[in-house]
Simulated assay, not measured.
Amino acid sequence: MPNPQSTQRLILASASPRRAELLRQIGVPFAVAATSVEERRGADESPRDYVLRLAQEKSRAGLAQAHSQRDVWSLGADTLGVVDDQILEKPHDFADFSRMMRLMSGREHSVLTALCLSGAGAEFSEVVETRVRFRALDRALIEGYWHTGEPQDKAGGYGIQGMGALLVASIRGSYSNVVGLPLETLAEFLERAGIAYWQTGMKLGVSSP
């Protein structure tokens, strides 16, 4: 584990409350940077390349906001679901959500999360995949879950850490990856950057870098 006296600062280049909560869970102080990155897949871009590019662009944008500060690292991340080579992002409306649920019903899909940690003239990045199998979903279950209000802002249309857990039959791989931040990979990145985790007695989240 890194030296608990480390002075390195971390910027979370994401507005995701789930990623912020995961950082607090492992005791990492951070600031949040509001970044604006266009999320549009290139014509010949694979899902892995697409999610990695978004994470890298977010990380670099967060770092650019702290250009005058030393010992700062920026964490960018992006998550999407994939089934039959179709990308499942946040649903636009109920029809889009219902389509995604039917695609995933009773079968496995992939959840890809890309991480990128930039700073001190270095950059670490990786795409982590988890395989999630859904239960068979009927119309009543799909409609009922939609009306909870939870799916609207979730990549793939569900939150495994919330009420969407009841849709899941099994997972293969990192659970936290499905939530939006693979902690196993992140720990390696933090250690390489000299950023301490398991810090106690500190304010673990602030509003801006």
Rank of each mutant, 00 (worst) to 15 (best):
S118E: 12
M100T: 09
R133A: 11
V72E: 02
D85K: 13
E123G: 04
A77Y: 05
V51L: 05
L115V: 11
A95S: 14
S110M: 10
S68P: 04
V82I: 13
F134P: 00
R99T: 11
A136W: 10
S110K: 12
S110L: 12
E108W: 09
I87A: 12
T113F: 07
A55L: 04
L141C: 11
D96T: 03
M104A: 15
D85F: 05
G62W: 01
L63Q: 09
D78S: 12
D85R: 14
A122G: 11
T79S: 13
E57G: 06
S105N: 04
E108Y: 09
L137Y: 08
F97Y: 15
R99I: 01
L117E: 10
S98L: 13
P91Y: 05
V72F: 11
E129G: 04
E108N: 12
H92S: 15
E108A: 13
V83T: 03
D85V: 06
D84F: 03
F124M: 14
I87Q: 05
S118L: 05
V72S: 06
R133F: 03
F134W: 01
L141S: 14
E45T: 08
A120Y: 04
D49W: 04
Q56A: 07
L80T: 13
A77G: 06
S74V: 03
C116K: 01
L75R: 06
D78L: 08
L75V: 09
V82L: 10
G106N: 10
A77I: 01
R53F: 04
V128R: 08
L63I: 03
D93Q: 14
E129D: 12
C116T: 13
R99F: 02
V132A: 00
L112W: 11
D93L: 14
S110E: 15
M100A: 10
A61G: 04
A120G: 09
G62H: 02
V51K: 03
M100F: 05
G121W: 04
G62R: 02
W73D: 12
D71Y: 00
V83Y: 05
D84L: 02
T130H: 00
L54C: 05
T130W: 00
M104Q: 15
R133W: 09
P47C: 05
G121F: 04
H92I: 08
K90G: 11
L63H: 09
L103I: 08
S98C: 15
V82S: 07
E126Y: 00
R139H: 11
S68E: 15
A77R: 01
Y50S: 08
Q65P: 07
R139V: 10
E57L: 15
G119I: 02
T113A: 05
R53S: 04
L63R: 07
L117I: 11
A95C: 11
R107Y: 07
S46R: 11
E89Q: 12
D84M: 01
Q69C: 13
A55V: 02
T130Y: 01
P91M: 02
V132S: 00
S74T: 01
E89P: 03
V128L: 07
M104D: 03
F97M: 06
Q69T: 13
H67E: 12
